[in-house]
Each structure stands twice: as C-alpha cells, then as structure tokens.
Amino acid sequence: MSDVAQALGGASFTGFARVEELAPQGMISFRGDLSDPVVQEALRAATGLEMPAQRGIVQAEERALGWMSPDEAILLMPHAALGGVLVELRAALAGQHHLAVDVSDARVTFRLSGPGAREVLAKLAPVDLSPAAFAEGELRRTRVAQVAAAFWLSGAEEIALICFRSVARYVFDLLAVSAAEGGEVRAF
C-alpha cells in the first residue's frame, strides 16, 4: 500500500502562535441516535470513551469522541485502528439504523499552539474564544473565514482544528497570516 499523502506535506508556521498540519489520523463520521443507550454502548465499546453531552468532546491518548449534532458523532483514533473500530461498530449495531464511515482522507487536522492560539482563531471564527466562554471539553463547529471547520482545546494553550481537505491550503494560509508577528491582539 502506498504512503498516505498529507494534504500539505506537514506544513507549519511559527508566529506569535504555532500552526502545524498534523499527520493523518483515523476519523470516522458516525450517524445514529446518540440518545439511544444501544448506540452509546456501541460507541463506548468501540472507542473506550463515554459519549459526551451536547457539543462535548472527550479525549484520551490518541482517541477522541465528539458530539457533532443530536445524531452525529466524530471518532478519532490512530489510522491503523480505524478498520477495527468500523468493524466493531457495525457488528455492535447490526440491524440497527446507523451510518459509520471512514472520513480520514476528507479532512485535515491543524494544531494551533502557544499563548496566542485562541486569538489566532478569534480572528477567523465568529465564536467567543475567551477562556471563560470556550473551555476544554467543548467541540465547536462553525466557520473560519469562508469555510466550515470544527475545533476544540486539545491541551493547555493548544487547539485542534479540522477542515475539509480541499481547503487545507486556504485554512493554513488563514491561520498563518493571523498568527503572523505583530498581529497580537492581547484581548484574552
């Protein structure tokens, strides 16, 4: 099997915050009734994580489980584990209406890090990114400038952001120009 190509070959930029394209990870889009205990159990069994509440995301090591809408979840895991998780999910939910599909290649993940990470994003997304309003454990779907994106705090002073692969260059350029030296806002 050929190597999986990164959309931007692992691009990075350092300004008053750092922007990096992360290595591809396994990503599953799951559709199903998230309030159904059977679905919750299947997700727990497949990921080892508890289905979070509205707009929540739980993370443990290299895995994460996020609430995307009342009937949509996102599952993150090492690329190699994806096949197994899909099989497990489908088996657990056999006969039950759901959809679980590999979207690893459809999306690109960026990491924003440093004390200015929140400010970089606040230049692009119509979201209150102050520490008081946007805390660890929240997954926010919105737009960055003119394209859709989702992001969450992936660590102290660290934000993970996913967007569609085709606009990876656009989003990287947006983040980089917003993180460029001299653009510190110092609002948070």
Binding site: S166, V167, A168, R169, D173
Partner: peptide, 16 residues
C-alpha cells in the same frame, strides 16, 4: 476585507 485578499480572497479548493 480583512484577511480576504490575494491568495485567500476566497477559498480555492484543490484536488489531491
């Protein structure tokens, strides 16, 4: 216009 000028005036979608 803010950041929306030059290469990032609007999103340009690229295939692999």
């Amino acid at each position: 216009a803010g950041e929306a000028r030059g290469d990032i005036f609007q999103p340009l979608r690229r295939t692999p």
